[in-house]
Structure formats: structure tokens, C-alpha cells
């Protein structure tokens, strides 16, 4: 029964949807070292893309370029129709539509969980305090930890902290969610709770770009898998194609090492 629903939803997603992220020939250097080489990819609305690859392959660099935490030197990145340049207004516009979840959670330790989630809506969207707090409680319920609202991040477990981070990113109602290795810093018991939240998000129709090593998640939830190595995209494909019958030799080598 659930597999039928999944095939239905993936079929629905294959209808023509506007492109959310368009990257063309993106190059990025750190000094003399080229971290991204001619990265070209398109991510459509409501698509869930998982980026896989060995460490140092440029996955995190690419995802951080999309919301300008790193600046690319050549090529174009267009997010929801807005090109990513040095223009501050473009950057602010893009950042208001893109939410990011970090490997190290990066919660604000001096604020309570509720304050962490309501900070941006109150001061960036100028939402009145009561509305922001109601919304924050709803989001915390959605990620499964409504009772932790008045605690400080230091009092929560890793999985709970990451879920708060997801709620904080969702509070700004982004159109795209970026995940930079969200479960890599978690204990194995806590990985599942975070992945469940991400699965719910994906099923709810969020455009997601996820850098992860969780192959199970990739197989289950991804619409497409992008495999990167040494700064360039080696292969792109659906999960079934990617895991059972990849084209490139490098892909096969990578899979043989991790599976």
C-alpha cells in the first residue's frame, strides 16, 4: 500500500514543475584549489535531490554556494528566478526563501528553544510576538518536541537539537530546504528521528537538497541522486538506477566501498 502511494507521488512529481535551483558551469576555487568544476544541475520544485560522494568531493561547498555562505567565482546559480551575485538585495531575497540545516546544528546557545525558532520571524518578517510563538509551537509539534520549548539547546540531545534546527529553518517558510550532512554528528539511535522528520517534509512537497551518507534515506526518499567526486558531477540518476545499475566506473567504485 505504501509503495503504491510512493509510486503515485513520484509520478506526480515528474509532471512539469518550475525549476527552483539552476546551476550552470559553476566553478569555485579556494585559493589555488578548485573545489567545484563546472557543476551543472537543475532542481525542480518539490523535488528531493540527494548529493552523494566521498569526502572532499565538493558536496558541502556546492550546497553552501547556493545560499551564498560561499561565493562561486564562475558560472551562474539562479534560485527561484533570482540570480546569485554580489548584490546584497539578491542574496537577502534568496536567503529568505532558502532554509539551511547544518551538520553542527548551530543553535543559539543563549536563547531558549522557543526563542531560537521565533527570532527570525519576529525580527525579519516583523511578526508580532504572540503569532510567532504560536507558529513556533506548531512547528515544534511537527518535529515532535513540543514540550522542550522553554529549554536551552545545551539541555537537549543531539537528535532533539537537530530537530529544533529544522523547525527554526522552517519558521521562515522557505521554498527550498538545504541539508548539509544533518545526521553526521548524531548518535545512531538519534539518526532515525531526524530522518523521519525529513521524510515527512519530503512527502509534504518541500523542495529539498540533501547532502548525506544515509543510503537508506537516499533510496527511500530521493527523486534523484547526484554523485560528485573531486568537485565535478559524475553521475545523476534515480535511486533505482543509481544503486542497482550505475553507468560510471567511479560510481561503481564508490558504491562498492560503502554498501
Amino acid at each position: 500500500m505504501s509503495s503504491e502511494i510512493e509510486t503515485m507521488s513520484s509520478e506526480m512529481k515528474q509532471e512539469t514543475r518550475p525549476d527552483m535551483i539552476v546551476c550552470e558551469n559553476v566553478d569555485k576555487w579556494f585559493g589555488d584549489f578548485q573545489a567545484l568544476k563546472g557543476v551543472t544541475a537543475t532542481i525542480a520544485e518539490q523535488e528531493v535531490v540527494v548529493v552523494l560522494g566521498p569526502s572532499g568531493s565538493g558536496k558541502s561547498t556546492w550546497i553552501r554556494c547556493i545560499n551564498r555562505l560561499e561565493a562561486h567565482q564562475r558560472g551562474t546559480i539562479v534560485v527561484d528566478g533570482v540570480e546569485l551575485t554580489n548584490d546584497l538585495r539578491n542574496i537577502e531575497k534568496i536567503r529568505s526563501e532558502v532554509g539551511m540545516v547544518f551538520q553542527q546544528f548551530n543553535l543559539f546557545p543563549h536563547l531558549t528553544v522557543l526563542d531560537n525558532v521565533t527570532l527570525a520571524p519576529k525580527w525579519v518578517r516583523k511578526m508580532p510576538k504572540a503569532d510567532a510563538e504560536t507558529k513556533a509551537q506548531e512547528l515544534l509539534e511537527m518535529v515532535g518536541i513540543p514540550e522542550q520549548a522553554s529549554k536551552f539547546p545545551g539541555q537537549l540531545s543531539g537528535g532533539q537539537q537537530q530537530r529544533v534546527a529544522i523547525a527554526r529553518a522552517l519558521a521562515m517558510e522557505p521554498k527550498i530546504m538545504l541539508f548539509d550532512e544533518p545526521t553526521s554528528a548524531l548518535d545512531p539511535e538519534m539518526i532515525k528521528e531526524v530522518l523521519d522528520v525529513m521524510k515527512d517534509l519530503a512527502l509534504g512537497g518541500m523542495t529539498m537538497m540533501v547532502v548525506t551518507h544515509e543510503m537508506g534515506f537516499a533510496r527511500e526518499v530521493a527523486d534523484r541522486i547526484i554523485f560528485m567526486e573531486s568537485g565535478e558531477i559524475v553521475e545523476v540518476g534515480t535511486p533505482e538506477h543509481f544503486f542497482t545499475d550505475p553507468n560510471e566506473d567511479r560510481t561503481k567504485l564508490f558504491l562498492s566501498q560503502i554498501l
Binding site: 543553535l107 527570525a120 525579519v124 529553518a169
Partner: peptide
């Protein structure tokens, strides 16, 4: 990471 998280949720520099 604190700077990056603040930037990612859209806070201005002074905020």
C-alpha cells in the same frame, strides 16, 4: 557556525 546560522535565517548584520 553561529554567523552562518544567523545569515541562513535571514538576520541583517546588525541584528
Amino acid at each position: 557556525g553561529q554567523y552562518e546560522a544567523a545569515d541562513a535565517i535571514g538576520l541583517t548584520t546588525s541584528q
